[in-house]
Design a binder for these strands. Structure first.
Length: 801
RNA sequence: GCGGGUGUGGCGGAAUUGGCAGACGCGCCAGACUUAGGAUCUGGUGUCCCCGACGUGCAGGUUCAAGUCCUGUCACCCGCACCA
């Protein structure tokens, strides 16, 4: 019998599917719809690695199964092509980013097609296509119109190597997300999107969707809602109200000092009345010099300076407390000022110890001579709060006190900050705003979109944080759309996250030039039924895109508030050395090499069989050979094929059990055990020595989503029909049960024997059979039976003394 | 520091949620077929002092029964990080 010639057979079926539009989604079809979404790739020069293949294979299998189950499936793919790596390559090689991108997309497309993914290739999108980014700009202008876009001169995260301002999300840990250089803080006027306005909606929306628990938790933590109180402290010398935020208003009686951020404006306002202003300036300068690393990693030692000339008055005790500046208080969270309660806050405690400040205990339960006590307990030294025994009641009481005195109220804070929405680089969507000396910031009219990225010769960034676009006079100089006078265009471009914030909407109607997508298409397809991607996108792309989508919902532009009904995440594919795959480590596996050597079906089966889908697992070529053996054994079954329209008695329960297992495991993303079940089935069929047509048909359909090429080939040659047009197989729960089953017999919890019993046997009968077994009888000999347990279909345990 | 996760053979990993630990695959061992095998097939493979006992990071506990539940503890991984 001929060997399985995967390279020609795979090509044959890929051509067939493409010619016949087998995977085309049909908007408006009467069939139930299923929208499966995978994160579209950033087409880098390195090409895809096998991690991409694993990421797409999960929903690929689900999508193919859904089609066989009669669904109209939308399983699209595209390219998120704006971004710095491409531009950096262009700068280095002198090749224009447009060409770099086109080459990379071609490379990725080739790789994806060779694996045989059932994407609807008629809906491919490219975020750098002007037909696409026209609508990215359109949504931006809608936000601008609705007050969600603003400019602000603030301290920003700046990457000196990439020469761009980064969002908080892109500069986690003080490192640039793109080049991993140290971030510096810089004052700059930049664009922001008011995502904080949606903080509560983004949080509440999590109740409506089905995300994996850890994904939900990460988003909740990222939004970081905290409830507490704002309290105003009066500055004795000038009557200024110094406003603080605290989550522990119950400890107000324990306040012995205050701390404000070094950049707090009150210092500038009263610089003339501060005696030690030189010392404060010196401290401030020192803090500005510190890198993010020093500020966050070397937190052991508290530093600070007491302000000589400003004293605060505690609004509830009327006592005077000193004010310090210290860099452990940040301007970016709360009000940039805190009330310090050393007895019950670890940081305040350290600070107080170092500076010799009083520590007043207001909650019983700890030993404040040793450390701060942050637990719950009875209130003491706290006026009208004394005797209250828990935090919740104490906070409620204190809020009443504050309200009565009119010096504070309940408040809410979020860790999430507004989204720094700009790049000073070439390869991004131009921000469609004109700066007019008379009218200020004016939106480019909608009918002038897209505002095209002009062709340039030199896309090197400027040295002063200016975009390369600033050097192009024809682009910059323009007329104000409002007054017609001379004006200048904004030269910043959007960050790389812009295009991906709404791409799932475009897939619904990718060629529309009247709207980002028609209402009809959006109503039909949205929301995404199942979205799978990497954990690394849970706090950035996911939050950003939920924000854009919720905004569009509020504008009446999309039919549902949450874009993704369900979200899962796959684990990484590690290199053979167990390390994360990276070019520098030289442990990257190219899917094309695997397809060349083993075929696409082997690659597909292996990435899903290598381990728990959600867990990271190292690549192993020898392990993959097991998957090749499996498919070779499936191919070789053609030699063992016999006639038969029904499962044979010796296979019937195995067939039904396998269908059940594979059907359920695919839905639970337990692809490894689904494949294992099919391997077991094959092993059993080999030991029987033959397979009939009914069994073959079922096997091929079950295996098809995983290994579509080999199964299509076998199906068409055996049954003369196209597998992709068949129906998913069904199982009967009643037939999953064998007529006789094996149960273990334990005596005092130790296995003594295994006996075969009729599946329907009742306890008495089973116990009788168990005791009749020689080994069991021997173990029972001369003992008193204390208890007898039969777990139906599993085991018998006889307890003796 | 806080939050989350993981810990099972030589390796990747299973275990119907309290019921036969190690499914399936890799690797390894033996045999068959071969001029040959890094191909294929068959059988074996947790450990040990192998008629028995011990085994799911470690120490206790609950239970007829614990990888699974409870208490304590260690190690590693991921995320956030002076968030007031």
């Amino acid at each position: 019998m001929e060997r399985y010639d995967y390279s020609s057979i795979e090509k044959k079926w890929q051509n067939y599917w493409e010619e016949h539009g087998t995977f085309k989604a049909e908007t408006g079809s009467k069939k139930p719809k299923f929208y499966a979404l995978v994160e579209f790739p950033y087409p880098s020069g390195a090409g895809m690695h096998v991690g991409h293949i694993k990421a797409y294979s999960g929903l690929e299998v689900v999508s193919r199964k859904r089609r066989l189950e009669g669904y109209n499936v939308l399983f699209p793919i595209g390219f998120d092509a704006y971004g710095l790596p491409t531009e950096n390559t262009a700068v280095k090689t002198g090749v224009h980013p447009r060409l770099v991108t086109d080459n990379n997309i071609a490379k990725f497309t080739n790789q994806l097609k060779r694996v045989g993914f059932s994407f609807d290739w008629s809906r491919v999108i490219d975020t750098t296509d002007e037909k696409y980014y026209r609508w990215t700009q359109w949504i931006f202008l809608k936000m601008f119109e609705n007050g969600l876009v603003f400019r602000d001169k603030t301290l920003v995260n700046y990457c000196p190597s990439c020469k761009v301002v980064l969002s908080n999300e892109d500069s986690q840990g003080g490192k640039c997300d793109i080049c991993h250089s140290d971030i510096v803080q810089k004052t700059k006027e930049v664009w922001y999107l008011r995502i904080t306005e949606y903080a509560d909606k983004l949080l509440q929306g999590l109740d409506e969707v089905n995300y994996l628990p850890n994904i939900r938790l990460q988003q909740e933590n990222w939004i970081g809602k905290s409830t507490g109180a704002f309290v105003n402290f009066t500055v004795k010398e000038n009557g200024e109200q110094l406003r603080i935020y605290t989550t522990r208003p119950d400890t107000l009686y324990g306040v012995t000092f205050m701390v404000i951020a070094p950049e707090h404006p009150i210092i500038e306002k009263y610089r003339d009345s501060i005696a030690n202003i030189d010392a404060l300036d010196a401290y401030k300068a020192e803090c500005a010099k510190k890198s993010e690393f020093e500020r966050t990693q070397l937190v052991k030692d508290k530093t600070g300076v007491k302000i000589d000339g400003l004293t605060a008055i505690n609004p509830v005790t009327e006592k005077e407390v000193p004010i310090y500046i210290s860099d452990y208080v940040m301007m970016g969270y709360g009000t940039g000022a805190i009330m310090a309660v050393p007895a019950h806050d670890t940081r305040d405690y350290e600070f107080a110890k170092k500076f010799g400040i009083d520590i007043i205990e207001v909650i019983k339960g700890g030993d404040i001579s040793k450390e701060a006590y942050t637990g719950d307990g009875e209130m003491i030294n706290s006026g009208s709060l004394n005797g209250i025994s828990n935090k919740k009641d104490a906070i409620a009481k204190m809020l009443d006190v504050l309200a009565e005195k009119g010096c504070g109220e309940k408040g809410v804070q979020y860790k999430m900050k507004d989204w720094a929405f700009n790049r000073q680089r070439y390869w991004g969507e131009p921000i469609p705003i004109v700066h007019c000396p008379k009218c200020g910031m004016v939106a480019v009219p909608y009918d002038e979109l897209p505002l095209k990225l002009p062709p340039v010769e030199n896309f090197q960034p400027g040295t002063d944080g200016e975009s390369p676009l600033a050097k192009i006079d024809e682009f910059v100089n323009c007329k104000c759309p409002k007054c017609g006078g001379d004006a200048k265009r904004e030269t910043d471009t959007m960050p790389q996250w812009a295009g991906s914030s709404w791409y799932f909407l475009r897939y619904c109607d990718p060629d529309n030039d009247q709207a980002f997508a028609s209402q009809e298409a959006l109503k039909y397809w949205m929301p995404v039924d199942w979205y799978n991607g990497g954990m690394e996108h849970v706090t950035r792309h996911m939050i950003y895109s939920r924000f854009w989508h919720r905004f569009l919902y509020d504008m009446g532009e999309v039919p549902c508030d949450e874009p993704y009904a369900k979200r899962t995440a796959q684990g990484l594919v590690l290199g053979p050395d167990g390390e994360k795959m990276s070019k520098s480590k030289g442990n990257v596996v190219d899917p094309n090499d695997v397809v060349d050597q083993y075929g696409a079906d082997v690659l597909r089966v292996y990435v899903l069989f290598m381990g728990d889908y959600e867990q990271a697992a190292p690549w192993s070529e020898t392990s993959m050979k097991g998957c090749k053996r499996f498919l070779d054994r499936v191919w070789a079954l053609r030699e063992k094929l016999i006639d038969g329209d029904e499962y044979r008695p010796e296979t019937v329960s195995l067939m039904h059990k396998t269908i059940k297992k594979v059907t359920e495991d695919i839905e639970a993303m337990k692809f490894n055990t689904a494949i294992a079940a099919m391997m077991s089935l094959i092993n059993e069929i080999y030991s029987i020595g033959s397979i009939n047509k009914a069994e073959m048909k079922t096997l091929l359909i079950l295996l098809n989503p995983f290994a579509p090429h080999i199964t299509e080939e076998m199906y068409s040659s055996i049954f003369g029909a196209i597998l992709s047009e068949q129906e998913w197989v069904k199982y009967d729960e009643k037939l999953c049960i064998d007529s006789t089953i094996e149960v273990a017999v334990q005596v005092n919890g130790k296995i003594k024997a295994k006996i075969n019993i009729p599946a329907e046997a009742e306890q008495d009968e089973v116990l009788g059979l168990a005791k009749a077994d020689g080994a069991v009888a021997a173990a029972l000999d001369g003992k008193n039976i204390v208890k007898e347990i039969y777990v139906k279909g599993r085991l018998v345990n006889i307890v003796v003394k």
